[in-house]
Amino acid sequence: MKMFIFLMEIIEEVNGYFKIRITTDNKEENYTDISFNPDEKKLEFLNQDRVGEYLKQNEYQLRKILHNKRKDTFFVGFKVKIVLRDEKDVAAFNDRSKIVVLDKRNGQNDSFVVDDGEERIYKIYTDGSFMEKYNRGAYTVLIQDLKGNYDIYSEKTEIKSSSLIELMAAIKGLKVLNNVKKIRIITDSQYVRKGLTEWIVNWKLNDWNTANGEKAKNIEYWKEFDKITENKYIEFQWVKGHSGHFENSLCDIYAREQAKKETSHKF
């Protein structure tokens, strides 16, 4: 899926409407202006030009960026680089029943959505949690090989962020399968599912800042996650937590039991 990079700069504000200049190709003449009201979520294309036509064709992606941007970060002078994927099916990416694929083999970095993934593929089931009662967290990784055999890894952590613990679990699984090129990660974390397939491209373009101009959280972990997926084909499958999914439930049980222990123990 071809990606295009734009610079988005807020150049004027009148009565709550922000005039935003969007430039491409690093050439000042290749730009268009839009107007956006963050309260009313009203978007207007102000020019008829090549850049504007492309943005109209990918309006859903542009709107998602603008809608997710906090109101207090709309001010004259704000700049951020954004990436739009050509004809991206945003609805499919947001459909949690779909599998999101990240293909980084042969020097590429492509992400797309499929209904069903590879039939023969190593699977990493993960879950993690922070237990306030014990002031500790833990994660569990369950790995299934091509013959259906399982290996389990469970580790305690002092990290207090459940999202980060989920990310640590995915990293652990990939490290165990370091020499495997095709892997599916099954997780109940949207943070893990979307971070590497959608968000990280924009973070890296903006020196690890978000669209709100703030540093992304857990940068060092995301850098490691990004690095260890090089030259791999990774499928991300989301499952609803605490829904009776066997492997996810097993990971949850082991993670909670591990967090309760006074001393760390690895399986």
Rank of each mutant, 00 (worst) to 15 (best):
R63S: 10
E44F: 11
D49I: 11
S154C: 14
V80L: 05
Q48K: 13
D110Q: 14
Y60S: 08
G117Y: 01
D115N: 13
K79V: 14
E132L: 09
D110C: 07
D127N: 12
G137V: 09
T73L: 01
L62V: 02
K156I: 12
T126K: 00
L62K: 08
F45W: 11
V141H: 00
R136T: 05
F45D: 03
L55P: 06
L46W: 07
G107T: 06
Q48N: 15
G107A: 06
K104N: 11
Y60Q: 11
V51D: 00
R70D: 12
E44N: 14
R50G: 03
R136G: 03
S163W: 00
E44K: 15
D116A: 07
E87T: 11
G128C: 05
R63C: 11
V83Q: 11
R120F: 11
A91P: 02
G117N: 02
I99A: 00
N94K: 06
D127C: 13
I159E: 12
Y150F: 15
S111M: 00
Y60E: 15
Q57D: 14
S97R: 09
K147R: 14
V80Y: 01
R120T: 08
L62G: 06
F45Q: 03
G137T: 10
I159A: 02
R120G: 04
K64V: 09
N47A: 15
K160W: 01
E158C: 02
S161K: 07
E44M: 10
S162W: 00
V100D: 00
E53M: 06
L62C: 04
K56S: 04
T157E: 13
D115F: 02
V113M: 13
V51P: 04
V90G: 10
R85F: 08
F93C: 07
N68G: 13
I159L: 08
V80Q: 03
I121A: 02
E59P: 09
N58D: 05
D103M: 08
Q144H: 03
Y122R: 11
L43N: 05
E87A: 02
S163L: 12
Y54C: 02
Y125M: 02
I143A: 04
R85S: 14
N47D: 15
K81Y: 10
K156T: 13
F112W: 04
G77Q: 07
R136E: 08
I152G: 07
K64Q: 14
K56H: 02
K79M: 08
V83S: 11
R50K: 12
S162R: 04
S154K: 04
Y54V: 12
K160T: 15
M131Q: 08
N135S: 15
H67W: 13
G52S: 07
Q48T: 12
L46V: 12
K88M: 14
V83R: 09
E87R: 04
V101S: 05
M131W: 00
R50M: 07
D95N: 14
I65K: 07
E44Y: 07
R136P: 08
I165T: 13
F112N: 07
Y122S: 03
V83G: 12
K69V: 00
M131N: 10
I65M: 11
G52E: 01
I143H: 07
E155F: 14
G107M: 06
S129N: 15
S111K: 01
